[in-house]
Simulated assay, not measured.
Amino acid sequence: MIIKYLSFSISIAFISWIVGMLINAFIRKTDFYHNHLNHLNFIKSEKLNKIIGLPVFKWIVKNTFFKFFNQKLKLKGKIDEAGLIKLRAEMTTSETDHLIAFIFVTCFAIVAFYNFKFKSGGIIMFVNIIMNLYPSLLQQENKRRIDQFINKF
């Protein structure tokens, strides 16, 4: 039974990435995106990032097949300010994709909880946090590091 919920959750998470990209493509052209979503920062504390396990998640992304998912999020060649700004923009896009996907999947979990399917809703939210929230938090951390480099230029 848990396998059924887990496979459904993973399927919804993958579908949510597509939904996130589609919705983000529309809102990317708005002022709201450039004025607010470009500067999101949920967790500013490095200590809190360590407590929630973000360094472990970062290691998993860097050292497993996940590193092949978004090839635009890599520095190539000589590092200059223009390259960092472009990389930061790609990270913002990825972060927003994952946040929209997180909200999308959360709706499924809320419906499951509303229908008293607590095990299903809990598994959906667990997978959602791992596959959508953590990548977004990782992008926020990376954007903070890039901002420090941009300020040095």
Rank of each mutant, 00 (worst) to 15 (best):
I110G: 09
F113I: 02
K78F: 09
V127C: 09
Y134P: 00
Y134I: 01
K119D: 08
V105T: 15
F104D: 04
D80W: 01
E95A: 07
K76F: 07
E81D: 09
S120A: 10
A89P: 03
K117T: 00
I85C: 06
K86E: 15
E90R: 10
L87D: 02
R88I: 02
K119V: 11
I129K: 05
I79G: 10
I129F: 13
T92H: 12
T93I: 08
Y114I: 10
G121K: 00
G121C: 01
F108G: 03
S120G: 04
T96W: 00
I130C: 15
D97W: 15
E90V: 07
F126A: 11
S94N: 06
M91K: 15
D80A: 06
M91L: 15
P135V: 01
K117E: 02
I85E: 12
M131I: 06
I129Q: 03
Y114L: 13
I129P: 07
V105W: 12
F126E: 03
K76S: 07
F113T: 03
A109V: 03
K119G: 04
N128W: 08
F126I: 10
K76H: 12
Y114S: 14
L133F: 02
V105G: 11
I85M: 13
N128Q: 10
A101E: 05
I100G: 05
K76W: 06
I100F: 07
A101W: 07
H98P: 03
S94G: 07
V105Q: 15
E90G: 13
A89E: 11
F118G: 08
L87Q: 03
R88F: 09
G122P: 01
Y114A: 15
F113C: 04
M125E: 12
I79E: 13
T92A: 09
M91P: 14
F116T: 06
F116M: 09
H98L: 04
Y134W: 09
V127D: 03
I103Y: 14
K86V: 14
A112C: 03
F118M: 10
A82C: 02
I100S: 07
I110F: 12
C107I: 15
F113S: 02
F113G: 01
A101S: 15
L99Y: 05
N115D: 13
L133G: 00
E95Q: 14
A112H: 00
V111W: 02
E95W: 04
L84N: 08
